[in-house]
């Protein structure tokens, strides 16, 4: 055998948050509960138990460089049943956060940067956004039973602040109306902000705590300014 097994101190372990102080990540007994429950086990070598084991063995670099941490959908099924109460998802997020930003797969990190700059992950200018949603709103109003429908934008004192998934605004605007139909039928008092309407927090996905916090902060600011107490955050 060529390589000796050697345990190294793991930065991931130190940084990954605990569910509570009595449930350490070390307590993992490799029982397989997480692996058995994870919908992705076996896909491209993914296995949550294996990731935890690698963390415990101090194989940080390997993990950070691999694409394993990026396969997780963060559904949380693993953690739900973990008898040892290990924070598997937070651990995986911690690993993602330790990846160099230029190595973050796909357009995620680029999206974060755009979002920080423009308030949404696709860098859509405000007037384009307003045009799109008003246009879709008018289309809805033309449908039978939705007379007088109008998209409320930045409406002060509304009951619900509604954020949007950039995909709906960008390419699949016909799907926007599903929510609106419900609001209309329920006579709900709601509104969409024209700034910082992004409903997908890629900072959360990529382990970028700063970006995540900032995105969340912007939504909170919107709510403060419009005097709204309820948030609807459909991803």
């Amino acid at each position: 055998m060529e390589t000796l097994t050697k345990r190294k101190p793991s930065l991931i372990k130190q940084q990954a948050p605990l569910r509570d102080s009595t449930h350490l990540m070390d307590m993992c007994m490799a029982c397989g509960t997480c692996s058995a429950g994870c919908p992705l086990t076996g896909v491209d070598g993914f296995d949550p138990r294996k990731i935890i084991r690698m963390v415990l063995m101090g194989r940080d670099e390997e993990l950070i460089e691999s694409k394993l941490p990026w396969l997780c959908t963060m559904c949380g099924k693993c953690e739900h049943a973990c008898p040892m109460g290990i924070n598997i998802i937070s651990t995986i997020r911690t690993i993602r956060g330790m990846v160099d930003r230029d190595k973050v797969p796909g357009m995620i990190h680029k999206g974060i940067e755009l979002c920080l700059e423009t308030g949404n992950n696709i860098g859509l200018p405000e007037e384009d956004f307003v045009f799109i949603i008003e246009d879709v709103g008018e289309e809805l109003a033309a449908m039978p039973g939705f007379a007088d429908f109008k998209v409320p934008i930045d409406k002060k004192g509304a009951n619900i602040l509604h954020t949007l998934h950039n995909k709906l605004v960008n390419t699949q605007n016909e799907d926007l109306v599903h929510w609106w139909k419900i609001f209309y039928a329920a006579k709900e008092d709601w509104t969409v902000p024209k700034q910082n309407w992004e409903g997908v927090n890629w900072g959360l996905f990529s382990g970028d705590d700063e970006a995540m916090k900032l995105s969340v902060g912007r939504i909170v600011d919107n709510m403060d300014q419009l005097g709204i107490t309820n948030l609807m955050y459909p991803e």
Binding site: G32, C38, R49, A81
Partner: peptide, 19 residues
């Protein structure tokens, strides 16, 4: 250690995933 027991399409049967 199995994660959970889920119903299977067939009436009464149970789906159990494991590694």
């Amino acid at each position: 250690r199995i994660h959970s027991i889920e119903p299977n399409e067939e009436e009464g049967n149970l789906k159990i995933s494991y590694v």
